[in-house]
Each structure stands twice: as C-alpha cells, then as structure tokens.
Design a protein around this nucleic acid. Sequence first.
DNA 1: CTACGATTCAAACAGTTGTTTGAAACCATT
DNA 2: AATGGTTTCAAACAACTGTTTGAATCGTAG
Lengths: 209, 209
Amino acid sequence: MTDSTRQRILDTAEQLFADQGFHATTLRQITREAQANLAAVNYHHGSKDALILAVFQRRLDELNSERLARLHSVLDASDPPDLEKVLGAFIYPALLLSTQSAGDGGRFMRLLMRAWAEHETQLHGAIARQYSHVMRAFADAVSRALGTSPDNLRQQLDFLIGALTYTMAETTDGQVEETARALIRFGCAGLRESALAEPRQTSLKENIA
Amino acid sequence: MTDSTRQRILDTAEQLFADQGFHATTLRQITREAQANLAAVNYHHGSKDALILAVFQRRLDELNSERLARLHSVLDASDPPDLEKVLGAFIYPALLLSTQSAGDGGRFMRLLMRAWAEHETQLHGAIARQYSHVMRAFADAVSRALGTSPDNLRQQLDFLIGALTYTMAETTDGQVEETARALIRFGCAGLRESALAEPRQTSLKENIA
DNA sequence: CTACGATTCAAACAGTTGTTTGAAACCATT
DNA sequence: AATGGTTTCAAACAACTGTTTGAATCGTAG
C-alpha cells in the first residue's frame, strides 16, 4: 500500500463527521479510532480543514464519474433518452456510496447534508463547484427527454436532490432499492407535470445542445 | 416585557446556529451579539444544549399549529379534500418562518437541515417527536384526497419534506413564492403517480381514519 | 552495516470552550 | 428608606481544542 495510515484516517474521519458533525469531531477522536498518532492528521493532511475537504473530494470524484458514465450509457441507448433511466443514472450511484459503508446506509447522505448546511463556507463552495457540471449534464438530458428548455429544470432537479438526500439519510439498508424505485417514479411524474406547465420549447435556439 | 434578555439570546442564537452550526457557535459569540453577559445563557436557559432545544421548540410549535390550522381549514372546505390545497397547507407555513427573518430566506430551513443531520442525538429525537402527529394528519389528508391507503404515503411525504428543506435553504427572498408553487405542482404530480402504482385501497379496515 | 528519508510518537503549546461563583446592581413592595 | 427577590456582571475554573516540535523508530537503497 502507498499509505495505510492516511487511508485509515480518511475512513474513520468520514464516519465520525457523518455521525457527529465536523466541529464536534476532534482530531484526538479520529486518531484514536484510526489507531494513529494525534500528529498523523497534520502530517498526512496538513490541517483539520484540509482533512474535511479530502474526505469529500474522494467521494465526490467517485460519485460524479459514476453518474456521468451511467448517463452517457443512457444517452447512447436511445434518442430522445428515457426519463426513468436518466433519473436512475442520477440516483443509483448515490445509493452505492451509501450502502458500501455497511451497517449504516444513510451515512454518506448525512455527510452531504451536513456539508450543504455549511452555507457560506469553503466546503459548500467546493462541493457546489464540483457538482455544477454534472448537474448541467443531467439538466440537459432531462430537457431532451421531455422536449423542454433546460432553463427551469434546475429547480426541479433540486427537488429531486433534496428528496434523495433527505430520504436516504434515514433509510436502512434493506429498503434502499425500493425507496430508489419510488423516488424515480415520484420524480418522473413531477418533472413531466412541470414540463406541461410551461410552453413547449422546440425552437432551434434552445434545443441544439 | 416579561424577559427581554431571554428573547434576545434566543433570537441571535437561532441566527448564529443556522449560519455556523451548533458546535461552531460559542456562547461568547451569542452573548456578545445579543448584548448580554456570558453567564446570561446559563442563567436563563440552563445550558447550551437546553438553549438549542429552546430555539427549536419555539419555532416548531409555531410551525405545527399553523400547519394544522390551515389543514383543518382545507378539510372543512371539501370532502374529499383538494390535494393542491393540502400541500399548500404544509408548505406555506414553512415559508412564512423563513421569510420573517428578513434578509435571509433560507435560514430556518438550514437550521432544520442542521438539526436533522444530528441523527442520533437528543435534538433529532425531539424534533421527530414533535413532528410525528402533524405528519400523520397530513398523510391521512393526502390519502383521502387520493383515495388510497395512508401506509405508503409517509415515504412520498418525506420526498416532499426533503425537496422543501433543500430547495428553500438556498432560495432568496424574492423567489420564495414562485418556488413554492413549483414545489406544490411537482409534489402533487408525484403523489398522484405513486397512488396509481399501488392497488386502490377501499376496504373499511384501512379507510376509517 | 550504514546512512538517509519517511513516518511515528510523546509532550508541550497557546488559545478557546461551557460552566460556576459570589458580589454588585436593579427594581418593585413594604 | 429598607427589604428581598431577580437579574447582571467580571473573574476564574478545569477541560479540551488544533497545531507544533524534536527525538525515536522504521524501511530501504547504497
């Protein structure tokens, strides 16, 4: 292994941050549970703030690439794309990150929730920045599936993100698959209804994307 | 006034908790901005944890009674109740709490978000306990509007709560009304679609409410 | 074996935390 | 003016925070 201590700190920090929050979790607690020395955090990661960012960077990179890979696979399958499959490409990668931390399915979602509540901090900005291009890609895909402009879709996608984060944060491992299916059905209906409300946008100017 | 310092501490604590989180906010910061002495928090509220609970108690009591009042008004208007109006009775009171803290529309929602992330703490349990009977009332109302069993509706209502909390947490004051309308339309479509998926439940056993 | 860079470790650093204390100040009632 | 209960205040408390330091240990290449 390139660096075992660094990884162990990252893993236990992720778990403790999700359970207790960033400020409430102490470096002594992290290093004790990771069976490392107190100074190891500063040695391997520089500072506590840098550790927090590192915890997210690792997972968000994983989440983003998995989502985009599935999305492109869906886009290649049919044109216009199937809305259910587009939402599936958005939702299932998030569930994988949750269920892979065995025993606590909602941990990653609670971590995201905590990060999002940190509204005007470095963390919120960093996550928003890493999310934005993925969100744009999915907004484009949904707009093509519905035949509408992608402009007002960001809001409806936020509805979906909110529902996903909140619900999965307290879903136990067994119900994850069923909850995901219900969420996809719920979201598709909401998106289709919202698409009906605004005038169809079929002009070239908006739809070449 | 019965107690001005107590109220001032409650107000500034609410604001700082939403902006920075519970642990990151210090009693010295609260008392400084509230123009009170450091010991005033412990004198008036007992402890920092008790202050956190008090901040939520005040707002949740307000939110719950407003929601239930509007719900009963909707239930009295027609039978079966109008689904859009039921969701409106759920959503608008939350917006009022957000907009009444001028200049930062999403503050209360971020506060709720932070509280919800505190998963296995006293705070999470207290909020869930205060929410449960309201949730039950709205689940019953929605089930009557749709003509389905209220059993599986809790999950769809959680979708709505998640979308509401997440979206409003970053909605600026001006867009609040429009966002609420979009959310109601989105949620109604999702609920109606989910109702179609399961078999109609019209037996006496489930529907006497 | 030796030497050297990477890693670990115990100890200490200065600063901050929530809480407590006892005296001072306030304020209405006698 | 004197009383007694409520509220404020400055000061101190022990405990804990993230970070730094310099020596000890490790693993490996010369």
